[in-house]
């Protein structure tokens, strides 16, 4: 009975968070922005693919006309899930902003309106309040991602004109789950900063600094440090070392540099999310067509990072929410 009462109170808080956000203009603007972009991105990718097919066909026709060997020309293959690259990048960038907005609002509103004082004088423990808030917002993020991934599924099956296999559906579903974990982390970080900082606007700005560093700057640094990225078209291609095994032999002496570059990338949990999802959806070629088990096994460190980041940030937030003196008088 007591347990049921606790659940009831947590659900009440969660429900309020959910409804409140749905009625919030800021939130709705962001969700629409994100949804439009994901769909635009898929459509752009499919146009991009179409353009590649056309240029392949033109090249093929030209070669055939002049009776040349056509072995060197590879036909672009259609993997519908690979169209999702841009979409995933938008979840990384704008989805994270959305989660920041939610985290900020869920604390800032209560602080700014003085309702925190009301909540804390009610017979409900702080930890239940926290759980309710967390649950409500995670459900919101779940609904948004669910909506998005379902849309993705629909669009891809329409564009691809092929039946999406069960394995592909499972892969999309797993990507959906990991997206929720990724977004919840940003929710917690932004709520945490809003709790810690006296000035709410400073906390918001700081959330954006963290966002820009983790989502954009660190992955970019890792990318530009890649030696093969230093020369347009790739260093090895330029000097005629095309065999992968030869490249690896040469790079052996530079493993410590590579390790440093990798650990820099590893410090951003966005990169872990990206590596995992790119593997799942086969956007990274070496994972294309592999089984889910294989991918999960191969990417278990990324999963571990992603899940730990979420647990750590939400635990910290719950501790601050329950322990910190939030009302200074």
């Amino acid at each position: 009975m007591k347990f049921m009462n606790n659940v009831y109170q947590v659900i009440t808080v969660a429900k309020k968070e959910y409804i409140d956000a749905l009625k919030n203009r800021v939130f709705i603007i962001f969700v629409s922005f994100l949804l439009i972009l994901t769909f635009v991105s898929i459509i752009v990718s499919s146009f991009d693919f179409q353009a590649k097919v056309i240029s392949y066909q033109t090249a093929l026709a030209e070669l055939q006309a002049s009776h040349q060997i056509i072995q060197n020309l590879t036909a672009p293959e259609f993997y519908p899930l690979q169209l999702l690259r841009g979409t995933i990048e938008y979840i990384e960038i704008i989805g994270a902003i959305l989660a920041i907005v939610l985290g900020y609002l869920s604390i800032a509103k209560e602080k700014g309106n003085n309702t925190l004082q009301l909540l804390f004088t009610r017979p409900i423990s702080k930890i239940k309040l926290f759980f309710g808030k967390f649950l409500g917002n995670v459900l919101l993020l779940t609904s948004v991602s669910g909506f998005m991934f379902f849309g993705i599924y629909l669009i891809i099956s329409l564009i691809g004109k092929t039946v999406i296999t069960n394995i592909e559906i499972e892969k999309i579903f797993l990507s959906f789950i990991f997206s929720i974990i990724y977004l919840s982390t940003f929710f917690s970080i932004s709520a945490l900063l809003a709790l810690i900082f006296k000035s709410l606007s400073n906390s918001l700005i700081l959330s954006f600094v963290i966002w820009i560093v983790f989502v954009l700057v660190i992955p970019q640094i890792g990318d530009t440090l890649d030696p093969d990225n230093q020369v347009p078209g790739g260093l090895f291609n330029k000097i005629g070392i095309t065999q992968k095994s030869d490249q690896l032999t040469i790079l052996k002496d530079f493993s410590s540099y590579e390790k440093a570059r990798d650990s820099l990338e590893q410090s951003s949990f966005t990169k872990h999310y990206e590596r995992l999802i790119f593997a799942l959806l086969g956007i990274k070629d070496m994972y294309n067509g592999k089984t889910i088990n294989f991918i999960i096994n191969d990417k278990n460190s990324d999963i571990l990072w992603l899940v730990s980041a979420m647990i750590l940030s939400s635990t910290l937030t719950s501790i601050i929410f329950t322990k910190k003196k939030l009302i200074n008088k």
């Binding site: 409140d20 509103k109 309106n113 003085n114 004082q117």
Partner: peptide, 11 residues
């Protein structure tokens, strides 16, 4: 009832 309370204005 605290001073200057505003409640959830979207609800």
């Amino acid at each position: 009832l605290p001073e200057n309370v505003k409640f959830y204005d979207n609800l």
